Amino acid sequence: MQETVVDTLAPLGIALGAALLALLVVQLVHVVLLRAGRQSRFLTDLANRAHRPVQWVIVLCAVYFSVRAAADGASWRHTFLHADQLIIIAAAAWLLAALLVVGEEAALSRFRTDVPDNRTARRVHTQVVMVRRVTVAVMAVLAAAVMLMTFPEARLVGTSVLASAGFAGIIAGLAAQSVLRNLFAGLQLAFSDAVRLGDVVIVENEWGRVQEITLSYVVVHVWDDRRLILPTSRFTERPFENWTRSESALLGAVLFDVDWWLPVPEMREELRRALESTDLWDGRVSVLQVIEATGSAMRLRALVSALDAPRLWDLRCFVREHMVTWLRDSHPAALPRLRGEMSSATPLHATLTGQTHTTDGDARVFSHSVDGRARAEAFTGRES
């Protein structure tokens, strides 16, 4: 009995020593990378993100090989090594995912999105994020498959599963039709350049910015801080407006309804002065045109330009407020008004008193003839 305990504890002691030695080596490498990473952001990210998964992989591998060599013939050896092998596979998948994130951040650091012309950077960010998510999902599935294949029973089941893969694929396709549609739609959005992270879009009658694109849904940050969550297939099957697909700079229109008395050239000059007084304008477009002149008013359209959608919105509000104030102070007669005409068939006294519905007899009695005016004066008591 004593030999059995010794035979059991000795391999475990060797495994524990190997684990501590592996931890010491990993810690030393971590410290070296942190010191070297003072001048390299890549090494710093690598040391921080890969530290934990590397610890698990190295320690588990050291334990696996030490137990395999020292516990030859032990009854618990096979079960212990199998469990250790499963954990090593999971830790290796974790390490690959961490290295993928480090590589992603290193690639994205070369493309800045905080500059005015960031179309290419936003496209790269969208594609890299989508590729990373797909790759992580594939690695998780492969890791689970490898873990299952370590069981002899799973290998036998795999033969029958492959034999019925056609039928199972049909059933899965029908059951997960919407999921697969959104999955392929997400990949299509990432590589078709139809929409990118940070794009300004109008979807479902809402103005917002694309905040997140996943394999199943898209998050749109609406202007009032709401989040509009839509399936990715919505952007491939139905139309939407993308204000920043080709470039961030945009044109905006401000409409004014004014009276015909307004001198349009003066308003055009005032618009130019207003735009030159604000840094919201990018200096490209300053246009004022009469786009409609019917009825009792003219409709003017002011076209202005800005570097991006938020600045354009603020610029349009600024132009609208400035020009309304200028119209009110400088040309009050040009403000919108309603016109009407008085018919000559309406008697003057009916117009003054508001009684416009008169009979023919009243019109003859109080007519504009000499006798009619005399009768009117006598009727009202007016002295001649």
Rank of each mutant, 00 (worst) to 15 (best):
V319A: 02
A363D: 10
G340W: 09
D362G: 10
E321H: 14
P336N: 08
R316F: 02
D360T: 13
D360I: 09
S330F: 11
T325L: 06
E341W: 07
R316C: 07
L327A: 13
T325I: 07
V365R: 08
L327K: 08
D329H: 13
R337I: 11
D360E: 12
C317T: 05
M342L: 09
E321I: 11
Q355L: 14
D362F: 09
T353S: 15
H331I: 01
G361S: 12
P336M: 07
P336Q: 11
L338T: 11
P332R: 04
G361L: 13
Q355F: 12
F318A: 02
L315G: 09
H331Q: 02
V319L: 00
V319S: 04
H349E: 00
R364Y: 14
D329R: 14
M342R: 10
T356Q: 14
T325K: 09
V324N: 08
M342N: 03
A363V: 01
H349R: 02
R328P: 00
D314F: 00
D329V: 10
D314T: 04
D329W: 10
R320Y: 06
H349I: 02
V324K: 04
E321C: 08
S367W: 04
V319P: 03
V365P: 01
R320L: 09
V324R: 07
T353M: 10
F366Y: 15
T358F: 06
L315W: 04
R320C: 05
W313E: 13
H322P: 02
A363C: 07
M342W: 08
S343E: 04
E321N: 12
C317M: 06
H331P: 01
M323K: 06
L348Y: 01
G340R: 13
A350D: 12
A334D: 01
G340L: 03
A345S: 12
Q355G: 13
E341V: 15
L348W: 05
L315F: 02
R339P: 03
A333S: 15
T346K: 11
T325S: 05
F318T: 05
V324Y: 08
D329E: 13
M342P: 06
M323R: 03
H331K: 05
T353G: 11
L338G: 01
F318I: 02
D329T: 14
